[in-house]
Amino acid sequence: MEAALIGSVLSALATGLGAVPILFWSHVTHRFRDILLALTAGIMVAASTFSLIPQALALSNLYVLTIGISLGTITLMLLEKFVPHVDLDHSKIFKGIDSKAALIIAAITLHNLPEGLSVGVSYASHNTGLGGLIAFAIGLQNAPEGLLVALFLIHQKMNKFKAFLIATLTGAVEIITSMLGFLLTSYVENLVPYGLSFAAGAMLFIVYKELIPESHGDGHARSATLSFITGLLIMIYLTEIFS
Rank of each mutant, 00 (worst) to 15 (best):
residue 1 M to W: 10
residue 1 M to N: 11
residue 3 A to Y: 11
residue 5 L to N: 01
residue 5 L to M: 13
residue 9 V to C: 09
residue 10 L to M: 15
residue 15 T to L: 05
residue 23 L to S: 08
residue 27 H to R: 14
residue 28 V to S: 10
residue 29 T to G: 15
residue 30 H to Q: 02
residue 39 L to V: 06
residue 43 I to L: 15
residue 44 M to L: 13
residue 44 M to G: 00
residue 46 A to H: 09
residue 47 A to L: 00
residue 47 A to W: 01
residue 55 Q to L: 09
residue 58 A to F: 12
residue 59 L to W: 11
residue 61 N to I: 04
residue 63 Y to M: 08
residue 65 L to R: 01
residue 65 L to H: 07
residue 68 G to P: 02
residue 68 G to D: 02
residue 69 I to T: 11
residue 75 T to R: 04
residue 80 E to H: 11
residue 84 P to D: 12
residue 84 P to W: 11
residue 88 L to E: 07
residue 94 F to V: 03
residue 101 A to W: 03
residue 105 I to T: 12
residue 109 T to P: 08
residue 112 N to V: 07
residue 112 N to R: 08
residue 113 L to P: 06
residue 116 G to K: 02
residue 119 V to S: 00
residue 120 G to W: 00
residue 130 L to F: 05
residue 132 G to M: 01
residue 137 A to L: 09
residue 139 G to D: 06
residue 139 G to A: 07
residue 140 L to M: 07
residue 144 P to A: 00
residue 149 V to K: 05
residue 149 V to Y: 09
residue 157 K to H: 15
residue 162 K to I: 15
residue 164 F to W: 14
residue 165 L to M: 14
residue 168 T to C: 04
residue 176 I to W: 01
residue 179 M to N: 07
residue 180 L to V: 13
residue 180 L to S: 03
residue 191 L to C: 01
residue 199 A to K: 03
residue 200 A to F: 02
residue 200 A to C: 05
residue 202 A to D: 09
residue 204 L to H: 04
residue 206 I to P: 06
residue 209 K to E: 15
residue 210 E to W: 05
residue 212 I to K: 07
residue 213 P to S: 09
residue 215 S to W: 04
residue 217 G to R: 15
residue 222 R to K: 13
